[in-house]
């Protein structure tokens, strides 16, 4: 079992999930529209004042991503469970973590696509101009998304196969997401304002540590979750 074999398995699982999604597109459409809808609701809740909208923009973007993205993760197992395809997938030779890594990549692409729509819409709705440090912003978004999708994909492996899966996933996931939410929102806000006192660097490092810790932990213990 070389790394090349593992990578091929990871790619196969990811491509399979993405192909299924590309052919139906139902998940992507629904989740993206939900994200935009959450942004609209935030707009109504916060009122039309330009200044307060701008201040709340990063928080609203992340909550929109969290609330809509959480619906995507159960789906990524649901298709297989409905078709009775999870057991055959587990029976294939090779390491179990590659299934997780493949689904993780597919979900990253999925949530990335949702963000591609939701974030520009948020910039328009909340009157935020594209910041000078847009590259760093993208980096923060990527780090936050990796943390979110890692744990989302991981917990969905359990919640999708239990009762009340719609409630269980956010209950498990959101308390774990607090460092991601804080880190991403604070780093983005400080980059937007160009305010050095809020120290975006420290938050980016924390996001990096979070991603590494939970990526490693999820890959290590995924086998325990999927084998029962």
């Amino acid at each position: 079992m070389s790394w090349r074999d593992d990578w091929r398995r990871v790619r196969a699982v990811a491509l399979k999930d993405l192909t299924a999604e590309r052919r139906s597109k139902s998940g992507l459409n629904a989740v993206t529209f939900l994200g935009v809808l959450v942004l609209m609701l935030f707009g109504f809740a916060l009122g039309p004042d330009t200044e307060s909208l701008r201040e709340a923009a990063t928080g609203a973007i992340w909550l929109a991503i969290l609330f809509s993205g959480v619906l995507a993760f159960n789906r990524s197992y649901q298709l297989e469970l409905d078709g009775g395809a999870l057991e055959p997938l587990l029976l294939y030779p090779g390491s179990r973590w590659s299934i997780f890594a493949g689904k993780l990549l597919a979900n990253l692409a999925f949530v990335g696509l949702v963000e591609l729509i939701v974030i520009p819409v948020a910039l328009v709705l909340f009157h935020v101009s594209i910041p000078d440090a847009w590259a760093a912003q993208l980096g923060v978004t990527l780090l936050g998304t990796i943390g979110f999708v890692t744990l989302g994909t991981f917990y969905a492996a359990m919640s999708s196969r239990s009762r009340s899966r719609e409630v269980l996933l956010p209950l498990l996931l959101f308390p774990m997401m607090i460092p991601v939410l804080l880190g991403a929102v604070e780093a983005s806000t400080s980059l937007l304002e160009g305010n050095v006192m809020r120290d975006a660097g420290a938050w980016i490092r924390m996001l990096l540590v979070y991603d590494v810790v939970f990526l490693a932990a999820a890959l290590a213990v995924f086998e325990f979750v999927i084998e029962v």
């Binding site: 917990y155 359990m158 460092p179 979070y210 939970f214 932990a217 029962v228």
Partner: peptide, 17 residues
């Protein structure tokens, strides 16, 4: 099995939170 994993990941998260 599941709750052991959830408990462990939660414990990992406590210092980060």
């Amino acid at each position: 099995q599941w709750s052991a994993v959830v408990g462990l990941l939660g414990a990992l998260n406590v210092p980060i939170v």
